[in-house]
Simulated scan of single mutants.
Amino acid sequence: MGTTRRPATEAEARALASAARLRILRLCLDQALTNKEIAERLGANPATTLHHVRKLVGTGFLAPQPSRPGPRGSTEIPYRATGKSWEMDIRESGVRGANAAMLDAFLEEVRLAGLEQGHFTRLGLRLTADGHAELRRRLQEVLDDFRDRPPPPEGEAYSLFLALHRDAGRDA
């Protein structure tokens, strides 16, 4: 098992190098939301949100759903996340800021949920190159397994942020 990720194009990597756009994808994961609904949930300006939505639609990360009637005779277009971001690797794109955007989105989501709502664990390891590759492969298998399960209707929404990084402070 394990998803083989394709390299992201520069445009795809740039679209994902924004904490706001990553949060929009998370908001639209389980349900389609209009630009106005997204802006309200983000506490952002609808014009700014529309810029982000258009970038995500243009790169295939969000898909417009059938339009629906809005207030005062307007027409609203809801958007839903496509799950495309899980299928790609942005590391080789050469676009800076993607990892920082993920961390910023995570920190904002945890702040909104409240730190006491999270379960945090830290672990220091010393690994060979083979051990590092094995750890990444096994973690990916677990993540892919849970991602591929159909979401239970009674299930609660959770987010997971995983960071495996060099521990420069211990390399002396």
Rank of each mutant, 00 (worst) to 15 (best):
Q65E: 15
G83H: 05
E37V: 01
A19E: 02
R111S: 14
E10T: 13
G124C: 09
T49Y: 03
P150H: 07
W86H: 11
A101V: 01
A63Y: 02
G83Y: 05
A15I: 01
G60P: 02
A39C: 07
D148V: 04
L115T: 13
N45W: 08
R5T: 08
G131Q: 10
E10G: 08
L62K: 00
L27E: 00
P152M: 12
K36P: 01
G155D: 12
E156I: 12
G124K: 09
E12D: 07
R126P: 02
V95Q: 01
H119W: 10
R5N: 03
E12L: 02
R149G: 05
A168E: 13
A168P: 04
V53R: 00
T3R: 14
A47M: 13
L135Q: 08
G2C: 08
L112W: 07
L27S: 02
R137C: 08
L115P: 04
A17V: 03
R80H: 11
G70I: 02
I90K: 03
D171E: 15
R91E: 12
R136D: 09
F161P: 01
L50N: 07
Y79F: 15
D30A: 14
E76Y: 13
A168I: 11
L143K: 01
R26N: 08
E37C: 01
P153S: 14
L123T: 13
N99L: 15
L33S: 00
E109K: 06
L103Q: 12
T128A: 10
R14I: 03
A133R: 14
G2M: 12
R6P: 02
P66G: 05
L162Q: 10
L42N: 01
L143T: 06
F61Q: 02
L42R: 04
R23S: 03
R147V: 11
